[in-house]
């Protein structure tokens, strides 16, 4: 356990370090401005018209005096823009774009290989409550706002290359305006839904010893052996912590920086936030593709659990045996909903 945390801390450390290197790039002259000013004063008398010390002051984030108001109005040349452009249009978009394509291919291949994973036993007709109304509402508000953000974000990031040739400039500009507006207003809603979802599902996602067994055997996917799991298996827990929490914070925080330019952020801040946001959101979308696949096409009965809130006992036994046993043993209340409506015996077999 400890080494896992140490590794995680190490990765975070390396990331912060590399980011701070990026931020350093537009940090101005090598010598302090006062020193350069002194050099210039000397040079003006010794070699008139040689302004070299002034020019080395002109590049980077050092600010001169200007009567025009506004953040960074006194900066003559900022270096970071070119780095940002190269990474955003190049490395991050190219690798990120192909990562999305590759994920879709992997899922397609997996579907061709396994198809929809069916239940091995026939449904019993006895329904078990799995998600309360509150839990489902939290999940779906996150899911819907995520989808809107992902689609509108992709339009902003890749529409120029993919959609302008199809729609032409004017129609695409309309589309991009709608995408930008939706994205910027749904973004904060998404963050709120993420927080609610996190709180609501936290208890059931707490890591336990069984999860390591599940991970070690890939959930029995390759061996075909049955690995019992709790209400959420380790895969779902990884998505909870790595996706909802870590990527939620990374993408959400960088998104807020981009979304509220009214606090006078510098361009270096915006460039960094933009790259983190783009990279993080691509990872988020790659993960979400897998999650959505498993919740719909990949696994029979999973979608109905989140739609209706209850699952067949056979499904519960096959996918979340420990959880079902806990319910049967009375360790988890069978009905957690406040409403008295009995779970309806629907679905569970499609």
């Amino acid at each position: 356990m400890k080494s896992v945390y140490a590794k995680f801390a190490g990765i975070v450390g390396v990331l912060t370090l590399s980011l701070s290197v990026f931020a350093q790039q537009s940090s101005g002259p090598t010598l302090p401005p006062a020193e350069l000013a002194k050099q210039q004063t000397e040079r003006t008398t010794q070699q008139p018209y040689n302004n070299q010390p002034v020019w080395s002051n002109a590049r980077g984030a050092t600010s001169g005096y200007t009567s025009i108001p506004g953040p960074e109005a006194g900066v003559l040349i900022q270096d970071g823009g070119q780095t940002w452009r190269a990474l955003k249009n190049g490395t991050v978009s190219v690798y990120g774009g192909w990562a999305l394509v590759a994920m879709m291919l992997v899922i397609g291949g997996f579907y061709a290989w396994k198809g929809t994973i069916q239940l091995h036993e026939s449904p019993t007709g006895r329904m078990v409550e799995r998600f309360t109304l509150l839990e489902r509402m939290a999940h779906w508000s996150t899911a819907i706002s995520f989808s809107v953000l992902a689609i509108s974000g992709l339009i902003l990031a890749f529409g120029k290359n993919i959609l302008i040739p199809v729609f032409g400039f004017h129609l695409f500009s309309w589309l991009a305006t709608i995408a930008k507006t939706l994205h910027n207003f749904i973004g904060p809603l998404f963050i709120i839904s993420c927080v609610i979802t996190f709180v609501v599902f936290l208890r059931d996602n707490w890591p336990k010893a069984v999860d390591f067994k599940w991970v070690a055997s890939f959930g029995g996917l390759l061996s075909g052996k049955h690995v019992p799991s709790e209400k959420f298996n380790a895969g779902e827990k990884i998505w909870f912590w790595g996706g909802l929490m870590v990527l939620g914070i990374v993408v959400g925080a960088s998104g807020l920086v981009l979304n509220f330019p009214n606090f006078g952020q510098t361009r270096a801040t915006m460039q960094l936030a933009s790259l983190i946001h783009l990279g993080g959101s691509i990872l988020f979308m790659v993960g979400a593709l897998g999650h959505i696949y498993m919740g719909t096409l990949g696994m029979a009965g999973a979608f109905n659990a989140m739609k209706t809130g209850s699952v067949d006992e056979a499904w519960a036994k096959e996918h979340h045996e420990i959880w079902l046993n806990d319910i049967k043993a009375g360790k988890i209340p069978a009905v957690r909903s406040k409403t008295h409506a009995q779970p309806q015996p629907v679905g569970g077999d499609d």
């Binding site: 249009n89 190219v94 690798y95 774009g97 192909w98 990562a99």
Partner: peptide, 26 residues
């Protein structure tokens, strides 16, 4: 998988803007 994915790097193009001069985008 990672090795195959890193082939994506080959898709990086020179970024010099190459729009036709004198012609507006739209």
């Amino acid at each position: 998988g990672a090795a195959v994915l890193s082939l994506a790097g080959c898709g990086e193009k020179p970024q010099t803007v190459s729009a036709k001069p004198g012609v507006s985008a739209a």
